[in-house]
Computed example of a mutant assay.
Amino acid sequence: MPRRPKSEPSLSLFTRGGARKYLSAAERARFYAALECLEPESRTFCEMIYWTGCRPGEALAMSAASLDTEAGTVTIRSLKKRGAQKGRHYRVVPLPRAFITRLSQVHCLGEGDDGAGAPKERRLWRFGRTTGWKRMGAVMTAAKITGTRACARGLRHSFGVHAALKGVPETRIRRWLGHANLATTAIYLDMAALEDREMARRLWREDGAGIESVPPIRRPDHTLSNTELIRLLSAYSAIAEEAPRLAFLTSLETRAGLPPGHP
């Protein structure tokens, strides 16, 4: 498994040579699709890192007691804490319901020690870090992801970037990843600002529900026929997210020749 050279700065998402240390959105999607190459227990291990950004050692330390299937969360014991916090710092991260269902099925989670399910203290994955690295490497290979980012750390970094792109607050990203300070978390927000293509895609809504679907307005007096009005209202109603809605209105004002912020 690729290791970060000690000479590289720790607070960076790029190597000194300029290579990315995180998975792009396309690579992240390919990684998830490639999880199908693993047997169920190995898949849930890699998928846990995908959904939470946890470190491999943190995943391997999880037991049935770490999961709250009713609340839909996992409690992670942070491994990077020092001093009085070492081994005593925990963070709670939400999980998708579909993944919780898969965990329950694969790891026979039930009520606990009464015979209805796995003992609460039993670890979810009974292999070590070396095996975990190999399983992660197999998925990266299947997904055709190479270089420094083709490892669990690259997947962890991609979780932070992905969360920042989706507008998750900085303090929440810090909590989910278990960072000691916001300076570490800030690298993901800085990176998200550079991912212009992803941000623009959310505005364009390439599925046809964004600003590209604004019907043309040809009347110089800004009056609309009933047909044009219905088309505009239908296009606006099809936009679910706030940012694309604002972009739609801005584009509409521009096409109509109205000044920004008109009454």
Rank of each mutant, 00 (worst) to 15 (best):
M1F: 10
R3E: 08
S7V: 07
E8N: 09
L11K: 07
R16H: 10
L23M: 09
A25W: 04
A25E: 01
F31Y: 14
L35I: 12
E39T: 01
P40H: 12
P40T: 15
E47A: 11
W51L: 00
G53M: 05
G53N: 06
C54F: 03
A59Y: 06
A59S: 05
A61H: 07
S66F: 15
V74F: 11
S78L: 13
K81C: 14
Q85P: 00
V92L: 13
Q105M: 08
V106Q: 07
C108E: 11
L109A: 07
G112V: 02
D113T: 00
G117W: 10
K120L: 05
R122P: 10
G128T: 04
R129M: 11
K134P: 05
V139H: 03
C151K: 02
A152Q: 03
R153E: 12
S158H: 09
S158D: 05
S158R: 05
G160E: 10
A163W: 09
V168M: 15
R172W: 15
R174I: 15
W176F: 13
T185W: 14
R201F: 15
L203Q: 04
R205Q: 15
I217L: 10
R218T: 12
N226T: 09
A235T: 03
S237V: 13
S237H: 09
S237M: 09
S237F: 14
E241C: 07
E242M: 01
R245T: 05
R255C: 10
L258R: 07
P259D: 05
